[in-house]
Simulated scan of single mutants.
Amino acid sequence: MRLLHTADWHLGRLFHNVSLLEDQRHVLEQLIEIVDREAVDAVLIAGDIFDRSVPPAAAVTLLDDVLGELCQARGLPVVIISGNHDGAERLRFGARHLRQAGLHILSDLANCFSPVTLSLGGLEVDIFGVPYADPEYVRSQFGVEVRDFDSAHRYLVERIDEQRHATRPTLLMSHCFVDGGSASDSERPLTLGGAESVAWEPMQHFTYVALGHLHGPQFRGGEHIRYSGSLLKYSFSEASQRKGVTLVDIDEAGSVQTEHIPLTPRRDVRVLEGELDALLTQGQGDPKADDYLLVRLTDRHAILDPMGKLRAVYPNVLHLEKPGMLGSQQRQQLSRERLRFDALDMFSDFFAQTSGEPMNTEQASAMSKLIGELKRDEEQGP
């Protein structure tokens, strides 16, 4: 049996106030092409289908289009669990009726101990889904004393383990933060205080564990306990990650083979660093000038409208940093002494760019006098 494991679609996401809906449609079309090319038997989506609990209408339409291609046009089973970004109740609307179409939405924690059994190619597998749930919800739902994410998740997984069929391969889907996983800036914390992680050990006996929540492809505890990662790069901290989906092959003996298949984004997410003039020259011949960019300028002098100049060649510069203005030895903390020393030089650069000519001797003398007076007033205090 061949499965496609994917997660963290975040449909409707805004990236620095730019809608990613068409970017998401672009990679989801590739996902469907992979399903066809690799003869996939079923698709597993491990949570965070939407970016927020009440998604925009266009995001709902996009999900409907993709599920129509998978379930209706191709007759493939699709198993979905809800993530911490999803509204579980809204996501499972009509779930009982949609099972007949091959769409299994597992977002009700009360039903997580009953598997979805798929029979394909002469092989039967059971799939259990643990939707995102905080410890308080698990405690109230089942009347058990769990105080953190780990104990709540452990309770659910151990009860699922008791329901496993003796001879069938058994898969687990879960939306959680496995201890030791590599996180990025775009993942919403599950809780405050750092008590959100869960142990991988209770999951190790399952044939395969399809995880969601962390956006970088990775595995924890064993190669069969795996995050597929998100469809796209949703923060600049993910710029070096290879986004894609995971192909999972399972045979009758329960052995598992996995393969990461990359997705090609409509626009990549990149970080550029250098002096403004060099970046402008580079941009004129950059074949990917439309990528989403964070630019770090290393220039150590004031620049008039750097964002406007950059966007003339890189139209999708979304964020600008100026570490060069902080000094080579103190990029993270501004030195007040350095600022005082360079104040005249910085103003001179600014004056030249705004007026088109350098300050004359009289103007430079007046500005130097003013800076000196301001410095003395600050040192003397009120």
Rank of each mutant, 00 (worst) to 15 (best):
H16Q: 12
V248F: 12
R90F: 05
S107Y: 00
L214I: 14
F128T: 06
G87S: 11
T117G: 03
D377W: 05
V313S: 13
R340L: 15
L339F: 13
R74G: 11
D290Q: 15
F142R: 13
E273R: 14
Q363L: 07
F351T: 07
S197H: 13
G193W: 05
T246A: 05
D86V: 00
D86Y: 00
R340E: 15
E273A: 12
M367N: 00
M307G: 09
G254E: 06
Q24R: 08
S240C: 02
Q163E: 14
V245R: 02
S182E: 15
L44V: 06
G229C: 04
L11K: 02
E321L: 12
D349L: 01
P56R: 09
S186H: 08
P287M: 08
K375Q: 14
G47L: 01
K288L: 11
V157G: 04
E357V: 08
L247V: 07
E252M: 00
L211F: 02
H26E: 12
R2P: 01
E22V: 00
A110V: 12
A59W: 10
R52V: 10
S53I: 03
A39P: 01
E337L: 12
D8Y: 08
V18Y: 02
A95P: 08
G87F: 01
P287E: 13
A210P: 08
S235D: 07
L171W: 05
A364D: 09
Y155W: 15
E158H: 12
A195K: 07
Q332I: 01
H5D: 14
L20H: 11
L247E: 13
E238L: 06
K369M: 10
P262E: 15
S228C: 13
D48I: 01
D134S: 08
G75A: 04
D249A: 11
